[in-house]
């Protein structure tokens, strides 16, 4: 399949799933009412459902999916490791921690945007820590180890918050938030997170050529004029902005950023730069599809998106490990 055909097919898929996402929900609106509700406001209830509930959910599904797919592709390319995912730098974990602190302290109850803002603060803290830990001329190994350290620390502090939670309801709230979901998000969440995701995408898309060059190793890339420090900064900041914002509004959603680059890599001739756009579209499609599935499989039960992606993703990951092991033998 040619590259352009692949991108076109993925784009059509994303548009289709976006439309389906808009048409499905507990309100049970028929297609005509849904479209009318989206376009004009004659039917007040339909207008509210479409513009305030389904539209933000679909937009966030698309943007967060694209973020996870794109950042996964970038990090696998940058670290030259097929097992890297958007969580590898510790940014998702620290953003989660920020959100958990907002829930724990009750700030999120007092001020609706406290949760996403604190989560983004967590992402920023992770970037500062990464730079402190990995120093001025960091290799990729140091970066991975910093990520492990930050993830562990954030996990421990999250556990501490659960441990010391003021009441069982707070603990349940924290747990449920961490499962990852797109339900009940408003346009405010879109306005808050989308600019950061877009900024992150710009930084990550700028890395295509550097990632191609890094296929042959850091020394050869450097000898071809690639500035390694700049590359690392863009990868870290781009991931922090986009994944930080994504985690801030949806919680942590695993496996999408790991799986999508893998599925698409053989279809783009394994070239890291070509994988970026394909993976962004693929991530958007997968997350939209998963979010639709949560509404179809268990309507009214609020099946969490992150739970579904993990249930589907973990067996895939296992298959990947087994396949890689066969390749080595």
């Amino acid at each position: 399949m040619s590259y352009r055909l692949l991108l076109a097919a993925l784009a059509v898929l994303v548009v289709l799933l976006f439309a389906i996402s808009l048409l499905i929900g507990p309100a049970g609106l028929d297609v005509g009412t849904s479209i009318a509700g989206l376009l004009n406001g004659d039917n007040e209830a339909a207008r509210l459902v479409m513009r305030e509930i389904r539209l933000p959910r679909a937009i966030l599904g698309l943007a967060i999916g694209a973020t996870l797919g794109l950042s996964g592709a970038v990090l696998q390319g940058y670290l030259r490791n097929p097992l890297a995912d958007p969580g590898v730098l510790g940014i998702s974990a620290s953003a989660s921690l920020g959100a958990v602190i907002a829930l724990y302290t009750g700030l999120s109850g007092a001020f609706a945007l406290a949760l996403p803002l604190m989560a983004m603060g967590g992402a920023v803290a992770a970037v500062v820590l990464i730079q402190l830990l990995s120093g001025t001329h960091a290799g990729t190994l140091t970066l991975i180890l910093s990520g492990v350290a930050i993830t562990s620390l954030s996990g421990a502090l999250t556990s501490l918050a659960l441990n010391l939670s003021p009441n069982p309801f707070a603990a349940v709230e924290i747990l449920f938030w961490m499962l990852g979901s797109l339900a009940d998000r408003s346009m405010l969440h879109v306005y808050l997170s989308l600019p950061f995701m877009l900024a992150g995408w710009v930084m990550l898309f700028a890395l295509g050529r550097a990632l191609d060059a890094l296929t042959l190793g850091a020394d050869v890339a450097s000898s071809m004029g690639i500035r390694l420090r700049r590359t690392q900064w863009l990868a870290v900041l781009g991931t922090a902005a986009s994944v930080g914002a994504a985690t801030a509004v949806a919680g942590s959603i695993s496996f999408v950023g790991l799986i999508v680059p893998h599925l698409l890599r053989p279809l783009v001739g394994a070239q890291p730069s070509r994988l970026l756009t394909a993976s962004a579209l693929g991530g958007a499609a997968l997350l939209l599809a998963s979010d639709i599935a949560t509404r179809i499989i268990a309507p009214g039960r609020d099946l969490k998106l992150g739970v579904l992606t993990a249930i589907v993703g973990a067996p895939f990951f296992l298959w990947l490990v087994i396949k890689n092991r066969r390749n080595v033998l």
Binding site: G77, T215, G225, I226, R265, Q271, P272
Partner: peptide
């Protein structure tokens, strides 16, 4: 002589045009 991803020979050689 390792490469991270299974690229074709032509694509590897073309990387030399990066600068």
């Amino acid at each position: 002589r390792d490469v991270a991803w299974p690229l074709s020979v032509e694509k590897v050689v073309a990387l030399g045009r990066t600068p």
